Computed example of a mutant assay.
Amino acid sequence: MTLSKKQKQHLKGLAHSLKPIVQLGNNGLTEGVMAEIDLALSHHELIKVKVPTDERELKKQIFAAIVRESNSVEVQVIGHIIVLYRQSDEPKIELPRI
């Protein structure tokens, strides 16, 4: 799924007040963390995930892996936080038309 610029702007606005639902720990990106991300996306559609690492390249790789494994769309990255969107079977968030 790809989002238009208008749709991403809409989602960024909705995500502004959200707190990170999932935060990676010392073990990094584990199957348990991915299961939590998947569950959160199924329930909320739009979530924030915090990856507390100072290594830029490692953070980029983790973000890419999360997007790929969760079949979600990266809406925005700010510092250690990535905003993800994945439409559920019964959409809760109505996206603007393209």
Rank of each mutant, 00 (worst) to 15 (best):
Q61F: 12
I82K: 03
D54P: 03
E74P: 00
Q76S: 06
M34S: 07
G79R: 11
K6P: 01
P96M: 13
R56K: 09
K12C: 09
Q7I: 02
Q7W: 09
L58F: 14
P52V: 15
L39H: 15
K19W: 08
L14E: 08
L84M: 06
H16S: 09
V83Y: 06
P52F: 13
I47T: 02
M34G: 01
L29S: 11
L14P: 00
K50E: 11
I81C: 13
E69L: 11
V67L: 02
L14V: 09
E94H: 06
V67H: 02
P96D: 14
A64M: 07
E57F: 13
I47Y: 01
V73K: 05
V77S: 07
I82N: 05
L11Y: 03
Q7R: 10
H16K: 05
L95V: 02
H44L: 12
I98F: 08
E31W: 10
P20H: 12
E57C: 01
K6F: 11
K60L: 07
L58M: 08
A15M: 06
A64R: 12
H44D: 10
L11S: 00
R97A: 08
D89L: 14
E45H: 11
H43G: 02
L95T: 02
P52K: 13
A40T: 13
L24A: 06
D89R: 15
E31L: 14
K19R: 14
I62L: 12
E90R: 08
R86P: 00
N27L: 08
A35V: 07
I62G: 07
I81Q: 06
R56H: 10
V33H: 04
E36W: 00
G13V: 06
D54W: 10
L29G: 08
I66H: 00
E74H: 03
E36A: 10
H16P: 02
D38H: 03
D89Q: 13
V75Q: 05
D54R: 06
R56G: 15
L95P: 00
L39Q: 15
V77I: 15
E74K: 11
F63E: 05
H80Q: 12
G79Y: 10
L18F: 14
P52S: 05
L29C: 04
Q23N: 05
H80P: 01
I98S: 12
V83I: 14
S72K: 01
S4I: 15
V73Y: 01
N71K: 07
G25E: 13
V33M: 04
E69N: 14
N71I: 04
K59H: 15
E55Y: 11
V22N: 04
K19P: 02
L39C: 08
E90W: 11
K8P: 04
E57D: 07
I81E: 13
M34D: 05
Q87F: 06
E69A: 10
E45P: 04
V49R: 07
P52Q: 14
L24S: 10
R86Q: 05
D54T: 13
M34I: 15
S72T: 14
I37D: 01
R68D: 13
N26D: 07
L11W: 02
A15P: 03
A40W: 03
E94Q: 15
I62Y: 07
